[in-house]
Design a protein around this nucleic acid. Structure first.
Lengths: 318, 318
DNA sequence: TAAAGTAATAGGTTAAACCTATTAGCGACG
DNA sequence: CGTCGCTAATAGGTTTAACCTATTACTTTA
């Protein structure tokens, strides 16, 4: 790249002199000495390879090319000022577009309860939300694809700070014609031999259900795996098995008691824990910690029926 | 103005690092050392008051604000590059918008013969034409309002370079019912006692006619002065007097022999001399001299019937 | 002709941009 | 578990260039 590039300073000097048509006046306005302007304009002219001003002992006027270049010079300074302004608004308080990664089994059902309040509290904060499997979220956080992720625990990477938010029960969902539908309470041992549906193995959710089935003595239906919680729900309705679905999903999407029976399994909680995680080195870590607190208090206020809050300040930094 | 303003260099460094996500690679691409980048980016970040990159020993990624600032930074460089490009195209060969001042009694009738050829020869040359009385043209040239003027002689200012172009006869124009219309030749003494019309006194043209009238023994009609050559023509048609009109005007605007009789006065040329003039200090003086030559050759080629060419290299520099 | 203005030049100072060499820390591999 | 190869940061010194004051050369105005 050219080393003799024009300087921002030179462009500003050019504009000031073009406006005052006087090296002396421009020097006063810019608070530099007149010889400085002379040498800088000479350097600028040499860098551009043309003459900007016609100087005489009597005064200074623009050349034709100088006149034509002036608007362009002004645009450069304008863009630079825009950069500075934007930076200034970004340096006081949270700003910037942070990339939030979420699990597809939680994000769509939690974020509608969270984002409005966040937007209200940090009104220059922008979040761009992307879905991804927890494993991908964690990798994406490490390599800068995400700035913040909303993920089920556990998170292993020691370079990440993890702030647990809440526990989410996984509720038992039965088809309307299931043999256990009439039972008031359903215990763990009642599910031995049942066929349990789940989504495909890329999701953390899958592993959890798999382990649950082992402990229940139930069968995981590997031949019919849903690609989303919605397809899973449809499969249950059609009688292909039973399923455990996250409480927030149920709150959001299941409204027809004649189709499905939703209940809680007795004898030991079936649940998953969600956390917010970010790079320990992130300059926005203070903001992210605040966001964790905001989410926790929103959970207590709005979602206590379905979720189990976790007290703040339990987060672990790697 | 802020002295700790960001530097063009810093912005380029910022962009290069953002694109390579590596101080080392960016350093190679920019052909500077890696420590230079480190210190410059630190300075840039301090100037903006925020953090652009998240650095670790493992690598570098953009922060959220850095990501948002990047397009803006690119725009600054883009505008600057535009400035340099425009300057480069302007520095080789004539370019820029030169402001040409012309007399209203010549410009509209000469320029249509001149401008197309000039445009063809110097295709990046742009002329913005303004009319003004010769006195104003001269002053406007001195103070930078014009870069070049097309004016009748004499021009006194010693700081100007004057290139005479051609002599333009002033032809005698009579109304169709004038007593001299039938005469084959009209001599100077035939006009004694005639009423001669002219335009208002701000024009150089006026003085010339005034002197002519004195030498002819004719009367200058001060009570009816036209504001343009066209009104003058109308006044002649209506029988208010006779007039001397520039040959180029007649060539352009007078086509009805039944209305007016146009002839040449015998016994001593009645004419005016036109010249191109510019500031002797103008950086475009070489171009202007070339333009003078172009106009002279066009006069010889296209307008020899009406104008008297003047050989080149007779110009006088003050 | 003097006074007040213009921009350019000379000479020296200061700030900053830059270099090389080194250090501190992370990740991968044997 | 140490080593090698990578990362960016730091240290110390050099060079560049931006800047100042003082002066000069010249023009316009009083």
């Amino acid at each position: 790249m050219d080393r003799s590039r024009p300087t921002v300073r030179q462009i500003q000097y050019f504009i000031a002199i073009a406006e005052t048509l006087s090296f002396n006046q421009a020097a006063k306005r810019l608070d530099v000495s007149q010889p400085t302007l002379t040498t800088q304009i000479v350097a600028f002219e040499e860098a551009l390879g043309l003459q900007l001003f016609e100087r005489s002992r009597a005064g200074t006027i623009l050349t034709a090319v100088g006149r034509d270049l002036l608007p362009n010079a002004r645009r450069v300074i304008e863009e630079l000022q825009g950069l500075i302004d934007q930076a200034a608004s970004g340096s006081r308080g949270p700003a910037g577009t942070y990339r939030l990664g979420v699990t597809p089994t939680l994000g769509p059902y939690l974020l509608p309860h969270i984002l409005p309040a966040l937007h209200q509290r940090y009104n220059v904060l922008k979040l761009s939300v992307r879905e991804g499997a927890p494993r991908d979220l964690e990798a994406g956080l490490a390599n800068g694809e995400h700035d913040l992720i909303l993920t089920p625990l556990p998170v292993d990477d020691q370079r990440l700070t993890v702030a647990p938010l809440f526990r989410e029960p996984l509720k038992l969902v039965l088809p309307a014609d299931h043999r256990l539908v009439k039972r008031k309470n359903i215990n763990r041992r009642d599910l031995a031999g049942e066929f349990v549906l789940t989504i495909d193995e890329h999701h953390h959710f899958h592993q959890q259900i798999e382990q649950l089935c082992v402990s229940l003595g139930a069968h995981l239906r590997r031949d019919y795996e849903g690609t989303s919680l919605d397809t899973l729900r449809h499969m249950v309705v059609m009688g292909m098995g039973i399923a455990f679905l996250p409480a927030l999903y149920i709150r959001s999407e299941i409204h027809r008691p004649d189709e499905l029976r939703v209940t809680t399994l007795r004898g030991g909680a079936v649940e998953r824990t969600h956390a917010l995680a970010w790079r320990a080195s992130s300059p926005a870590r203070g903001l992210f910690r605040e966001i964790s607190d905001v989410i926790r208090s929103l959970v207590v206020r709005d979602l206590a029926d379905d979720l189990v809050p976790i007290a703040a300040r339990k987060s672990r930094s790697g």
